[in-house]
Computed example of a mutant assay.
Amino acid sequence: MQFSSSLCRGQLIRRYKRFLADVIHPGSSTEAPLTIHCPNTGKMTGCAEPGWTVYFSTSDNQKRKYAHTWELVENRRGDLICVNTGRANPLVAEALAQKRIPSLAQYDDIKAEVRYGNEGSRIDFLLSGGDEPDCYVEVKSVTLLDETAGEPGGQGYFPDTESVRAQKHVRELIDCVHHGHRAVLLFCVLHTGIDRVSPAQHLDPVYAGLVLEALTAGVECQAWKADISPEGMTLIEQLPFAV
């Protein structure tokens, strides 16, 4: 997946009001900070420290209040992190269409945002057309790295805070399996420093318990890592996943 426009580089001053960030942009004609849109409603732990390098895209939509969108950040270790959570689904859609996820390559029909379940959810992808039952795929973006070891590469977690919405999605997947469908919880790792993934028991024990219940019920959990650069992103490898 290539970014539609070349990303500009800047230095983060601060992220605030959830949806905004101020950056220093060396290419600006003024010394005033540039305010950009932050497309991430999460806590962004380990992803938004002042002074870090940020990469942002530019829209030519004249109706937008803020023309620039924060896409990537580079942490102090040199890891690249995609903070735009809206990129995860297109990245997975590309991998599905190009048959780069072997366990899901047998499906020819890919539908996005299909209503399902008893709790008013929309599944990220409904796959059909293979010899197996229809497959429901829920995508989660992983950017939280445990840096306690202080070494490159490490343990990633989802979610980065308590998430009632994520809990609901796991319950819906369990229900899918109970109704004879295939269900996959796909963790899209958008942090080059992460090399394994687990549910964040220390941040959302309810979610972690539901994931364990889901695995027992037959829901498949997969973690796939993206190669990330200012030019684009591609899912490249499956990572270990453990509860």
Rank of each mutant, 00 (worst) to 15 (best):
L72N: 05
V137S: 11
E138M: 08
V189P: 06
G156Q: 02
L34V: 14
D131Y: 05
V211F: 04
Q106D: 13
A183I: 11
V189G: 02
I236P: 03
G46H: 00
S4F: 00
D134F: 08
V243E: 03
T35A: 14
I36D: 05
E71A: 06
P90A: 11
H178F: 00
E31M: 02
G130P: 06
L186G: 09
L190S: 09
S163P: 11
C135Y: 05
I228P: 08
D109E: 14
K99L: 10
A93Q: 13
G218Y: 10
C8S: 15
F125Y: 14
Y157H: 10
L91T: 14
E94Y: 03
R100A: 12
A208M: 02
V137P: 02
Y55V: 06
P39R: 09
F56Y: 13
T85I: 14
R18D: 14
D60P: 00
M44D: 09
I174V: 13
R122M: 08
D124S: 09
G46V: 01
V219T: 10
D204I: 01
L212P: 00
T41M: 12
R64S: 11
V184M: 03
C47G: 07
V189T: 08
C176A: 15
T216V: 03
K168V: 15
S229K: 00
K63M: 15
S103V: 15
V23E: 07
N61W: 09
G120H: 06
A166G: 08
L80W: 10
D109L: 08
V92F: 10
E237F: 02
R15N: 05
Y55D: 02
R182N: 05
C47E: 12
H202P: 01
T161M: 04
L203F: 02
G78P: 06
G193L: 01
L215F: 00
R76F: 11
S5E: 13
T45R: 07
D227K: 05
H25R: 11
R77M: 10
P26D: 12
R171Q: 11
E151P: 00
L72H: 10
